[in-house]
Design a protein around this nucleic acid. Sequence first.
DNA 1: CAACCTCCAAATGTATAGAGTTGAAGGTAA
DNA 2: TTACCTTCAACTCTATACATTTGGAGGTTG
Lengths: 241, 241
Amino acid sequence: MPDKANRLGSRIFGGRPSTIDVYELLRRKILEHTIAPATKINIMQLAKELGVSATPVREALRLLQGDNLLVATSNKGYATTETLDLKGVRDLFELRLLIEPWAARIAASNRLQNPGIDLADEINSFDAKADSIQHEMFGHDTRFHTAILASTENETVIQAFSQAHCHLHLFRMFRDDWDWRTSIAQHKAIADAIANGDPAAAEDAMREHLNSAYSRFIEVMPKDPKTRPLTKVGSSKLIRK
Amino acid sequence: MPDKANRLGSRIFGGRPSTIDVYELLRRKILEHTIAPATKINIMQLAKELGVSATPVREALRLLQGDNLLVATSNKGYATTETLDLKGVRDLFELRLLIEPWAARIAASNRLQNPGIDLADEINSFDAKADSIQHEMFGHDTRFHTAILASTENETVIQAFSQAHCHLHLFRMFRDDWDWRTSIAQHKAIADAIANGDPAAAEDAMREHLNSAYSRFIEVMPKDPKTRPLTKVGSSKLIRK
DNA sequence: CAACCTCCAAATGTATAGAGTTGAAGGTAA
DNA sequence: TTACCTTCAACTCTATACATTTGGAGGTTG
């Protein structure tokens, strides 16, 4: 609901420039899948919804473009990125296989701040709610893999990896049919190896987990993405390549 | 030089929106080290220099912020990123060691479009001009490593890696004192292994090259970055953390 | 002399208007 | 029908005006 303070020079929240608020709101909506892939964004309508002018919205969209969450076309506007094709999924898992087994090794080598306990907590708290919906599964998966990566304390790798938006892309494609029980079992194996301080076992377990996930992904992958139903979200229209 | 066509709704070049032109110009200036690290950017002065209004400049700056080439602070403006500290250099080479030996292996395994010849050409054309200045060395180094990475044809890895801006950061720190002869010799070894179709040798050569470069970097690294002289560029002021 | 307050120029952030482009509906001709 | 042209509404992109914030100069007070 637009604040009545929305006049010249106003701010949405606190004294902060509203570009930041618009950016964070849209980023969350895209990552949370509230805005579907290949959705065109109407600047003026979005600005009216948020109670701000077009300027901060446009700047927020440019930021999201830099984050690889939007694509821009001259004089045509902005749209969320497409879902990945088969090669895109392959490329993504190739990147994961380069980084995540290494990260698991580091995590297992870290004896002072070993993340094993936190990882076990994450698994158990998720496992408890056996009726979990798919949405929660991806939240767990994101937290689990992010925690391992974070334990490397390598900001450069963390950033490079996170900007690939692994979970975003996979979640957008496979939200409805994903065998989370298999993943949970593999997560437990990884967490155990890390907690035991066994770098080689942790690295292997992670590599097996990724290979397994990749195999299962390409198995259930839609044959022709164009026939996939697209949901119309809010005031946005849909685009097709 | 501002075109006389610069009035309402005009474009700098062709019919293209000027945001793109401003973005590409600034990006090149930052990557080419024309704009020094930790340089504050004045929006209005920059807009006047380029003959456009503030709006496209601001959008270009947001894009560069998304590329991690600028940092923005609320109500304080934009500035180019700082040079890396010791941990930053270490993190960067850790990322390179994860990706580039793998890329060299792929390149050597590629028998149909083996990049070995192109790499040899790149080395020879650079080696010919023995009086090369440092600036050309970094151009060569960038082209050499980029070519190997490109031969993997993995867009995801290429993008994740390029957004770390390896060469930008290293160039900004070590432009004046860098032993390029050692690097050239190692490049030759890598190119030979790739041309010979020897994946294991290519991977090892790349790993040795990176380890060697890292050792040499931290040896000549400035002890206290704050005492490093900063050049004042154009209309921009300098900032300090 | 140091700490603090007041004031103001410079720069940032936002709103708004107008210029330019796109894409589609509707009409015309072969 | 099909292909092509015209027209127009919707939207993007840029310029400009104005509100807000920041940081420092200069004076005041203890």
